[in-house]
């Protein structure tokens, strides 16, 4: 840690030590009860609620001088919100930052899991808007807490099955619910369901922070994470008929870009680090 790099008048990583301890205790309980939402005394951060304050509080409680931080939003290192959060932590911790997935010890993300498989020792911190997977079926916290306590997830299965009846598919394409360690139904945050399989038995530690809703939850490494489905409608991920217009990948999650007013579109990798590395490799082999 280089003290000169930390903004004057602020503690390392912004939060005071007491707040960090409170978050740390909540994190230890969260990993001990995988998928269970631990209430914590979430604080106002200097960014608005909904813009990643939960993820930022978790990152601030976890980060140390030896960490190397990567921040992505929509899979990209260069989206404005990712740039802003990365600058915040650079300013208030002085730690190294990177865009390379494999170099990072700590990755804060909004809406994606990097394409490159995570490794043991890495920590992935998700920003979570609505932590409760049952919230849009049952708005009351008192009720959903009871459902989790009783492992009563019937309403979730009914909702998914109604989708199938109406659309022929489960009509949930992101924030697709998962069952963690065979016990808790969990919201994986609004990642596309394309990323759900990456959560299962990952060697990395996955931490989830919901600032406004004041909840923290976690998936320890090597933990079963199963996307909910039905025997006759097994879980499946998104596929594209096109490949990335930049690097040509046909395995990554693609974002659609509109090229003209007639709606002509192309697709590009949402993970900018993955796309850049593929391009670099292509240039070497060319």
């Amino acid at each position: 840690m280089n003290p000169q790099t930390i903004r004057e008048g602020y503690n390392f990583a912004y939060l005071d030590e007491q707040t960090k301890r409170m978050i740390r205790r909540a994190l230890l309980k969260a990993v001990a009860i995988p998928g269970y939402q631990v209430p914590f005394g979430g604080r106002e951060m200097p960014m608005p609620y909904g813009w990643g304050t939960g993820g930022m509080q978790v990152t601030a409680a976890v980060i140390g001088e030896n960490d190397c931080l990567k921040v992505i939003d929509q899979g990209a290192d260069d989206t404005t919100n990712a740039v802003s959060i990365r600058a915040f932590f650079r300013d208030l911790t002085g730690v190294r930052t990177t865009e390379k997935t494999e170099e990072a010890t700590l990755i804060q993300t909004r809406h994606r899991i990097p394409e490159k498989p995570l490794q043991a020792g890495q920590v992935l911190v998700y920003q979570v808007p609505i932590p409760e997977p049952l919230r849009f079926i049952e708005p009351s916290e008192v009720e959903t807490r009871k459902m989790h306590a009783l492992e009563d997830y019937g309403v979730m299965h009914i909702k998914l099955y109604e989708d199938i009846a109406q659309f022929g598919h489960i009509a949930t394409a992101y924030a697709y619910p998962v069952l963690v360690n065979g016990r808790y139904v969990m919201d994986p945050s609004p990642i596309p369901k394309f990323d759900n399989p990456k959560m299962d038995n990952s060697p990395a530690l996955q931490l989830f922070g919901a600032g406004r809703e004041k909840r923290i939850y976690a998936i320890p490494p090597y933990t079963d994470v199963k996307s909910l489905d039905f025997e006759d409608h097994p879980f499946e991920v998104q596929r594209w008929e096109q490949c990335c217009a930049i690097c040509g990948s046909d395995e990554s999650f693609l974002d659609e870009v509109i090229m003209d007013d007639q709606g002509a579109h192309e697709f590009i990798c949402s993970d900018t680090d993955y796309c850049r590395e593929r391009m670099a490799n292509l240039e070497v082999t060319a």
Binding site: F12, K20, L28, V31, A61, E65, L205
Partner: peptide, 17 residues
């Protein structure tokens, strides 16, 4: 500040693994 963070990371490691 540093010591508390490092102790916590060790505890987080052993509690999650």
């Amino acid at each position: 500040v540093t010591d508390a963070q490092q102790v916590f990371r060790s505890l987080l490691k052993v509690m999650s693994e």
